[in-house]
């Protein structure tokens, strides 16, 4: 194992250069973030992921952001275990009626200032699950959404570009 670690240390990082912040996301976020919020956040974001009815596809790709290749934490963004520690709720899925209360409670438990990112086609517009008895539909029917990241599921690079836009817009420049 030590040989392995040594090789990792000498072999250079496997992490790839991050993408530029997504243009549509920057446009969507423009003017949404207040100055006070920007000052408090600096260049750091804590994200609480909430699955509100996803098929788990989005979760797999969000997981990939934590692998050494995408390495989300180098940008100052990290996933936290509780909404009480979070600045951002990253919500996936077409918000099932059975998950509505849990989602709203997670939002209530998140301290201000806070943002909501709707991740994946289901969270953006309900996807294929619109119109049934079991789903409410897009996340913005339940919570105010600040940023939409479409895709089924979005690729890790797309997720990264969207989240970087959030960081750029909330930067104290």
């Amino acid at each position: 194992m030590f040989k392995h670690i040594l090789k990792s240390l000498t072999g250079g990082p496997v992490t790839e250069a991050g993408p530029a912040p997504a243009d549509p996301a920057l446009a969507e976020l423009a003017g949404k973030l207040e100055k006070a919020a920007k000052a408090r956040l600096g260049r750091s974001l804590s994200i609480r992921e909430v699955d509100a009815g996803s098929c788990n596809g989005c979760e797999l790709e969000i997981h990939a952001l934590n692998n050494p290749i995408y390495d989300l934490e180098r940008f100052g963004i990290r996933f936290v275990a509780s909404p009480r520690h979070a600045d951002v709720l990253l919500v996936t899925g077409p918000v099932t009626r059975n998950m509505r209360e849990a989602l709203v409670r997670s939002w209530d438990a998140t301290p201000d200032p806070k943002w909501v990112v709707a991740c994946g086609d289901c969270a953006v517009d309900g996807g294929l699950f619109r119109g049934g008895y079991a789903c409410i539909g897009p996340v913005n029917e339940v919570l105010p959404v600040d940023l939409h990241i479409p895709g089924c599921p979005p690729r890790p690079a797309e997720l990264l570009a969207g989240l970087l836009a959030l960081l750029e817009t909330s930067d104290t420049r």
Binding site: L128, F129, G132
Partner: peptide, 9 residues
């Protein structure tokens, strides 16, 4: 909790 009503849809 993640019941989306797939069979109904």
């Amino acid at each position: 909790y993640v019941h989306r009503g797939v069979e109904g849809l």
